[in-house]
Design a protein around this nucleic acid. Structure first.
Lengths: 346, 346
DNA sequence: ACTATTAATGCAAACATTTGCCCAAAAATT
DNA sequence: AATTTTTGGGCAAATGTTTGCATTAATAGT
């Protein structure tokens, strides 16, 4: 049972059958204005019933348009990223683009390698969330110098200006912390993310700024920096926080996983959330509404971020007018979602 | 400021510079045995420092190998699928393949359209999870008849045999239910998924079989069929379940979202889980360990499923010996993870 | 009726790479 | 020294589509 490689029907075949030239077929298929409706119909009908399919590779080769965009994310199976990707794919599909996705696994080496590959594949643009390891941005600068449209999201290069979509992490953190203050917290701790990443630094700064702005004391032992904001790490942090004396009355966590661990540990210790300790998370992961008490958090607009990134990228790819734009920055509004974990009866 | 489309360096350029023929360059780059180490080194060095990049499109065009595999999932932003995709990407990358991902949004029409596109793109194989709407499998049969390697996972065609990776949903559900029985439940209800989908039918059957096997009565009003097993639907179901008289002492849910809603509602009503009602979910989503009480569930091997699918697909693509295989089915072992929601003190 | 347009199609080159086959030089074998 | 084998490369075709330019046919304008 051999693999019968039935050679596919080409434009030439179609041309021969219909007594037309390949160019006409090509144009008819592309709905070119100079082809009559009659022939267009003829061609598309014959194409349909003969099972013809346009060889996209050959097409790309000749036209230099691959209709593909590359995406690099740290990992696909993180809620935030999978939602961003979903937004990107959605938007791209509607514009006739498809997405090629790679995971850097937060490795600098992988990131460089993938960018190379993507360039070889002649993607028309790239959407990137930086690997955590990435401290050196030379490869990105070089990439951008090739004039290939690139848009960053979430974790973006810090040493130079470029296209990016972010949320205002500083402000969001400020608002989250302010919210805790307004419900009466005076002794607020922060579970922070990896400080080598800009967004987590910004969240920490937002927390600090809010305290300062309300003249609350800033204490170093109220800041707990984690490596990756995992649920596990959150548990460890929570234990340490419980040793604090006096016990804090509010916790602002840089993501929902650590906030969830905080809730979990407090529940276990019979410390009432939100009455004794109020909690605010970040990102509005699915767990946020499921957990008991449900979690006050920041909607970080993952899907919209993906859509915005795709939209921006495609504009840069297609629209000549965008050539004069050196770089473009879009900051999405976030939203404080108040739930039980910070709603006090009083 | 015009977009300076600096024409990339080609193999020909390299050939000219080094006084070699394009074929030699091509072969040197591909590490062809008939090229001397000396020239290979020469070529790769020159290529490196001149910033040469092999045009993958042209290469694919000529060689008919795109090194790409297409993935169709209902949606990317569902834990299960994002984990499967992660597994696929990982495995594919290691073998030099890249993945092109589309979301069918559970639409039959989209699914057909995407398959067409993917064929045009000349992917070397596809990994597909069927759209919920898909009842007619003609397009899939046609696809497979083209001899393009295809592997299905999770939701797979039911009317004909084909390559697939699944878990044993029936058995897993049986085990889950049996577990409830063994801890003393005698009155177990089931929150079921959409019955037009095979895996959810299988889970229901597994539930039934377990009851039968332990001579427990089977009651129609103990089966709650949902449309999409969403958290919201779960809440509605939970309310209905609470109206049952007598109150059930065990609930087996076809996924963790609905299990979570069940827990949530019972908590609210101060009905003790697991003492009064024990709960088992399915899939081991992140919430499963975070929720209070933590959730007994079935590890559905999402990542491994992705890896297995990619591995199988790539074998079929590369290995001649696989030509005589008509179809291949791999069923992964699942694992019952016992947590608090089904651990009774007694 | 004759030219000027317009509409519809064809010609042929070009795209960058791979690959079957051929060839020359060098090495090995008589 | 003559022949065979091996080694390292080159030639040129082929891949399927697109596109600038040329060409023909049809229509309109005078």
């Amino acid at each position: 049972m051999k693999r019968k490689k039935t050679t596919p029907i080409t434009i030439k075949d179609l041309a021969k059958e219909l007594n037309l030239s390949p160019s006409t077929i090509s144009r008819a298929l592309a709905d070119h204005p100079k082809i009559s409706q009659a022939t267009k119909k003829l061609v598309s009908e014959r194409a349909e019933q003969s099972g013809f399919r346009l060889n996209a590779i050959a097409s790309s080769f000749r036209s230099k348009k691959t209709k593909s965009i590359g995406i690099i994310v740290p990992r696909i199976d993180i809620d935030f990223h999978s939602r961003v990707i979903s937004g990107i794919e959605d938007c791209a599909y509607k514009s006739g683009y498809h997405v090629i996705i790679f995971q850097s696994k937060d490795s600098y080496k992988m990131e460089k390698e993938i960018i190379q590959n993507l360039q070889n594949m002649m993607v028309e643009g790239m959407i990137i969330c930086l690997a955590m390891e990435t401290k050196n941005f030379d490869h990105l600068k070089k990439l951008i110098k090739t004039k290939l449209p690139v848009v960053f999201y979430d974790r973006t290069p810090e040493t130079f200006d470029t296209n990016k979509i972010t949320i205002n992490d500083f402000e969001s953190a400020f608002n989250a912390t302010e919210h805790l203050i307004k419900i009466g917290c005076k002794n607020i701790v922060h579970i922070a993310g990896n400080q080598s990443t800009g967004i987590f630094r910004a969240r920490l700064e937002g927390y600090k700024a809010a305290l300062k702005s309300y003249h609350l004391p800033l204490r170093d032992d109220h800041i707990f920096v984690t490596h990756s904001l995992s649920y596990q790490e959150g548990l460890t942090c929570a234990e340490k926080i419980l040793e604090l004396n006096p016990l804090p009355d509010g916790v602002f966590c840089a993501n929902d996983y650590t906030a969830a661990s905080m809730v979990k540990v407090l529940n276990k210790r019979k410390i009432n959330v939100p009455e004794q300790v109020a909690i605010v998370g970040f990102s509005d992961y699915p767990i946020a509404q499921i957990i008991e008490p449900s979690l006050t958090t920041i909607n970080d607009r993952a899907v919209q971020m993906g859509e915005a990134a795709a939209k921006m990228l495609i504009q840069h790819i297609q629209d000549q007018d965008f050539d004069i734009i050196d770089h473009q920055v879009i900051t999405l509004k976030t939203e404080l979602i108040v739930r039980e974990s910070s709603t006090r009866k009083a």
